[in-house]
Write a protein that binds this DNA or RNA. Structure first.
Lengths: 107, 107
DNA sequence: GACACTTATGTCGGATGTGACATATTATCG
DNA sequence: CGATAATATGTCACATCCGACATAAGTGTC
């Protein structure tokens, strides 16, 4: 599996040692792609939040969630689903097209 | 909320009466957008499967799931998450970029 | 009609995700 | 250095999702 540089950097930035993340973690290419998507969406959550000068607590209140979960979203914690990430992005005002763009950026 | 024609048709095709689905079902625009995304992904699952001339059972076997769940995926049943839809699409060979395209198409 | 195949629908036990809370860690500013 | 705000991490009860199974409904073919 050939991973793009952007992907490697993002994985590394999250403390996941990687030459090739898929090899190292024994991820199939599908699993790796899934993780990539989650990281892209997680980053977009943080981007939308910081761009608007909001704290995690403020975002949590708006989403009906908690600060800790927002932190986990932005960290792409294994305990957060793509479902939650997408719902949160829409709740922050992103459109489906915006979400699609964020995913494409990960490619 | 102003829903695009493609969206109306898709909702109607699923038996959801709609002038404006958001109004009728009392969905917020975010909820409506979320449903739209699910429908787009569900349709893409079916498209990938039929294009390859596979039955739901065959796809289920490949994904390590069951025929009934595949049927529910394609029907965008409330019990299936975006998570599962995305994982399934990746399992069927779609790339994150492909997934993004499917979502954009819903917009 | 009867039969085989495919897809749809209903249900359920076990797995996973979620919000909430407590608590740590990390700034930032006197 | 405290003190305060923001973010990160750990845990848990409760909710939701998932695969599995049964079964209904649709689609051909004979």
């Amino acid at each position: 599996m050939q991973m793009l540089d952007a992907g490697k950097k993002r994985l590394a930035a999250h403390g996941w040692r990687s030459g090739d993340a898929a090899d190292f973690l024994c991820l199939s290419s599908e699993e790796a792609a899934f993780v990539e998507m989650k990281l892209a969406l997680a980053g977009y959550v943080r981007e939308l939040r910081t761009t608007r000068g909001l704290t995690q607590s403020e975002v949590a209140a708006r989403l009906g969630s908690s600060q800790s979960r927002v932190a986990k979203m932005e960290a792409a914690d294994p305990s957060v689903s793509v479902d939650l990430l997408v719902r949160s992005l829409l709740g922050l005002g992103a459109s489906p097209a915006d979400v699609a763009r964020a995913i494409s950026a990960a490619a």
